[in-house]
């Protein structure tokens, strides 16, 4: 097993935390992990990429991820061109959208989830923007089967402040349960 997960979000939306939560969840299942990001001049709102690597043995790779096996998109308004790169037919794509979109030009395993609506329901909000990171971590667990939901929940407890556990645990559960594969096929 050597999985490379790429997360797409915007500065301030918690994509770094997503990468870490998934890493910790896999670690709890005995896997070796890395969670990192590409750092530059950090700006709230600018598109960002973060990464998680999960493997059966110690990870020697330190370079960036060029051919992701999984791509998760936290923000529905991100342009497609950003998250399309490096995707192959075997890649799994999980997008935060409020309805099923076709993506006819993308040949991969596609899933969608209305994470923003879940964030609105749960009032998961920081500085006026909705935070979908824990929801998307649940969604990735469901769509890929890389980790169990229970491990994600434990990892959320490990990574986040106790004060915000309840909403984020609920968020991950809903993310897990409300992820749909595309019915329109590959």
């Amino acid at each position: 097993m050597f999985e490379e997960i790429r997360w797409h979000g915007r500065g301030g939306q918690g994509a770094v935390t997503s990468a870490k939560i998934l890493a910790e969840a896999a670690h709890r299942e005995g896997k070796f992990v890395q969670a990192f990001a590409f750092y530059g001049a950090e700006r709230r709102g600018a598109p960002v990429e973060t990464y998680t690597r999960i493997a059966d043995s110690h990870i020697k790779r330190h370079s960036q991820i060029y051919k992701p096996t999984v791509v998760a998109v936290l923000d529905p308004a991100l342009p497609k061109i950003l998250y399309m790169k490096g995707i192959t037919e075997d890649s799994t794509l999980i997008v935060n959208f409020n309805k099923e979109k076709a993506f006819p030009d993308l040949k991969c395993k596609k899933h969608w989830i209305d994470a923003t609506q879940i964030a609105i329901d749960l009032e998961l909000k920081i500085a006026d923007s909705y935070i979908t990171n824990t929801i998307m971590t649940g969604a990735v667990a469901k769509a890929t089967g890389l980790v169990k939901l229970d491990s994600v929940l434990d990892a959320i407890k490990g990574q986040l402040n106790e004060r915000i556990w309840d909403t984020n645990l609920e968020a991950a559960k809903r993310g897990f349960n409300e992820t749909h594969p595309y019915s329109k096929g590959v």
Binding site: K20, A23, F32, V33, Q34, A35, F36, A37, H62
Partner: peptide, 12 residues
């Protein structure tokens, strides 16, 4: 340690 490659990469 290398900037970002180690300093900001989370691992076990």
């Amino acid at each position: 340690q290398d900037a970002y490659i180690l300093s900001h990469t989370n691992a076990q």
